[in-house]
Amino acid sequence: MTTYIIRRLIMTIPLLIGISIITFAMMQFAPGNPAVLDVDPDIPPEAREAQIEALGLNDPLPVQYARWMGGVVTGDLGNSYISKRPVVDMISERLPNTLILMFASSVLAVVIAIPIGIVSAVRQYTKTDYAITLVSFAGVAVPNFWIGLMLIMFLSVQFGWFPVGGVQTLNADFNLWDRLHHLFLPALVLATADTAALTRYTRTSMLEVKNQDYIRTARAKGFKEGKVIFKHALRNALLPLITIFGLMLPTFIGGSVVVENVFSWPGIGELFLTSVNQRDYPVIMAMTMFTAFLVVIGNLIADILYAIVDPRIEY
């Protein structure tokens, strides 16, 4: 198992290099560059040219890439073109907030989606099932920034049940309840689409398993419906869901870009959006590589979980 994990991690290196080359190239092909966007329009063209030259943006692309890669290998992701601060610092001070948000969202998604999906499958073609189906399609279809805004408007502004944004009450000491209070709405909104999708997947997976021969065997053994569903069907139905969940993990990063902006949540999603708008190449590169790494890790976690749950899989 350990050798398998190590092998998988080594295999990700060429993958990440490939991703970095593509991202690097695409970034350069996009119109605009940091000097043009950020600098005062009254500055004379010579000064702007000098700025571009100083950032090394006139060098051939392979040279620029090699310079960036050289930094990465030594653990230096460079400095932001805009704030001039090290990218590592900028990300590491915001990363915990995003990770907390992602973790809370994924827990919410699983805790909500799986029971509802089971109910939907067990009561297939009943009104309950149709209602769940309708709501989950809505959950996938409605953009999460809109849901976020609506929740803020009603629950936060009108009823005052939840704070409007931020990670905690300003200038307050650390307080777990206060943190959770702030976390709930953004986590819920970030989880919406994936919860809805996961509900549908759970339903499909349960329905498929319910028709298997071993479920009939379980019934023939005299087990009550609850035991048949939760002991014999559920564990088999979870297998495909693990893969789907692993693939969902990186979508939380994408979702967090929007949700963090709506809820003024100081995470890397917010940083990502700002850096793209400002063509802050070192930050964009670091963020993309981080997301790519997360995809790889998500898949690896899914594969490991798979091996734990399904005895038929060996490494």
Binding site: D213, Y214, R216, T217, A220, K221, H232, N236, D310, R312
Partner: peptide
């Protein structure tokens, strides 16, 4: 499963794989 038991045609799929 107690007074009346049943075995099925497909032994390959009649046992729970997990």
């Amino acid at each position: 499963g107690n007074d009346i038991s049943m075995i099925f045609q497909e032994p390959m799929t009649s046992l729970n794989p997990v």
